[in-house]
């Protein structure tokens, strides 16, 4: 293992990856993955950006006390933490249910061809 060839050349060229890429199974996996991760990432980044802009430019709004000394800014900050946890768990359950079975199926079809045993 000491002499490491560049990673791209490690897989045996016996699999026709272009054919796999075009296959409906793979296309389904790819679009499922993208349809989840792109919108969710963008939504999270926008929500974060909105928070940062509020903190920067809406000082008085963020300083409004809600109860005791706890103000809107602090609650929104904690809400960022909560949504991060929530999105994490949402993605995990999505990936376990909707992505993993598809990718396991494809892997099972392809692995014998690449000569890799598990």
């Amino acid at each position: 293992m000491g002499n490491d060839a560049p990673s791209a050349e490690t897989t045996e060229p016996t699999v026709d990856f272009r054919a796999v890429q075009q296959s409906p199974e793979f296309q389904r996996l790819r679009s499922r993955h993208r349809r989840f991760v792109f919108p969710v990432t963008i939504a999270c980044l926008l929500w974060y950006l909105a928070y940062v802009l509020l903190a920067g430019y809406a000082h008085d709004f963020m300083s409004t006390p809600v109860f005791g000394s706890i103000n809107i800014g602090l609650l929104l900050g904690l809400a960022q933490i909560v949504t991060t946890f929530a999105v994490t768990m949402w993605y995990v359950s999505f990936a376990n249910r909707r992505l993993d079975p598809l990718s396991a199926e494809l892997r099972a079809e392809l692995e014998p061809a690449t000569g890799v045993t598990r």
């Binding site: 897989t11 699999v15 990856f17 272009r18 890429q21 996996l29």
Partner: peptide, 13 residues
Amino acid sequence: QAEMEVRSLTGVG
């Protein structure tokens, strides 16, 4: 590109 995309999503190889 095809190899990278297939590998990245399926873990083949």
